[in-house]
């Protein structure tokens, strides 16, 4: 059945080809059906979600979809738009700044010899093993000491720290920035900081995109920190907002449609970002495991 022993020519039995395609096909359904269901359901009214075929559209799908979107963004003074904006600030701006900070630190750990370098790296590594959720309550206690809970800062500032980003940046910098190049830049009279921002970051660019994406997803997904820090609805990130709506569905049934449409709207930017940045993450993701 297997043609492994033929030395050349990638000829494989039809059976193993079919088996492979079958496995992948079945799991494609597993992975995409829930997203498809979400897309279809967001084109329905509350009654239609239970009353019509769950995985197919209705005759009025298009207008219903737009009216759902309209209600989503107007409900409760348009708080949903506010949530999206908050998420963009927490995750977008947070990951951007966090990436620069992590890249600088990882780069210094990779390209300079100095006392305590290994010690710092080991501390960073242990930081990787301390999960964000375990820090949520301690952070809450600290922020309540300085009366900063229930503010934007309480979620934004802790999100900037990414030990894993430093770890990745160190690996990437060691691999992609040649020491000779830095020496040459020094001889050219370029300052260390300038060399980093003009030469090294360019060489590390694919890595930086990967670090950014990792941190973006980590902040976007972080649920415990905003849950424990924020009371004021207008500060919620979109995940916490949808969670709050979802837990009110039994009292306010009309929220069900909004939760479904809102879920769709909130995942579309991420899927789009992943598609657009595909060539970066697909090459960069594995690098973390290369020692």
């Amino acid at each position: 059945m297997r043609r492994g022993n033929t030395p050349r020519g990638p000829r494989h039995s039809i059976m193993s080809r079919t088996a492979a395609m079958l496995i992948m096909g079945v799991f494609t359904l597993y992975f995409l059906t829930p997203i498809w269901w979400l897309l279809v359901s967001s084109t329905k009214t509350g009654g239609q979600i239970t009353g019509t075929a769950p995985l197919w559209f209705t005759m009025e799908s298009i207008p219903t979809f737009f009216s759902n979107i309209g209600r989503l963004f107007t409900y409760s003074d348009g708080v949903f738009g506010r949530w999206l904006l908050n998420s963009a600030i927490y995750a977008g701006l947070g990951a951007l700044l966090g990436t620069i900070i992590a890249a600088m630190c990882g780069y210094a750990l990779a390209k300079y010899e100095f006392k305590g370098r290994e010690a710092i790296f080991n501390i960073v590594l242990s930081g990787v093993l301390v999960p964000a959720t375990a820090l949520a309550l301690p952070l809450f206690l600290i922020f309540s000491e300085v009366k900063l809970t229930n503010t934007l800062w309480a979620v934004f500032l802790p999100s900037l720290v990414s030990p894993f980003g430093v770890y990745l940046a160190r690996i990437y910098a060691a691999a992609s920035v040649p020491g000779e190049l830095l020496e040459a830049a020094r001889l050219d009279g370029s300052g260390e900081i300038r060399t980093f921002f003009t030469v090294s970051t360019r060489l590390m660019a694919p890595a930086l995109v990967t670090i950014f994406l990792f941190q973006f997803v980590a902040i976007w997904n972080n649920f415990f920190l905003p849950l424990i820090m924020l009371r004021d609805q207008t500060l919620f990130p979109v995940t916490l907002g949808l969670y709050a709506w979802n837990s009110q569905i039994s009292q306010i049934p009309e929220l069900r449609v909004l939760v479904i449409v809102g879920a769709l709207v909130s995942i579309l930017p991420l899927i789009a970002a992943f598609l657009a940045l595909q060539r970066f993450w697909s090459s960069g993701l594995g690098a973390g495991s290369v020692k």
């Binding site: 992948m24 799991f27 494609t28 992975f31 995409l32 829930p34 997203i35 269901w37 979400l38 997803v217 976007w220 997904n221 649920f223 995940t239 916490l240 949808l242 969670y243 979802n246 939760v259 879920a263 909130s266 995942i267 991420l270 899927i271 970002a273 992943f274 598609l275 595909q278 697909s282």
Partner: peptide, 19 residues
């Protein structure tokens, strides 16, 4: 396949749980 299998990663835990 690569994209289809990776797509759910773009869905935050809260939203995946709601779905």
């Amino acid at each position: 396949f690569r994209l289809a299998f990776f797509a759910p990663y773009a869905v935050p835990g809260v939203i995946a749980a709601i779905m």
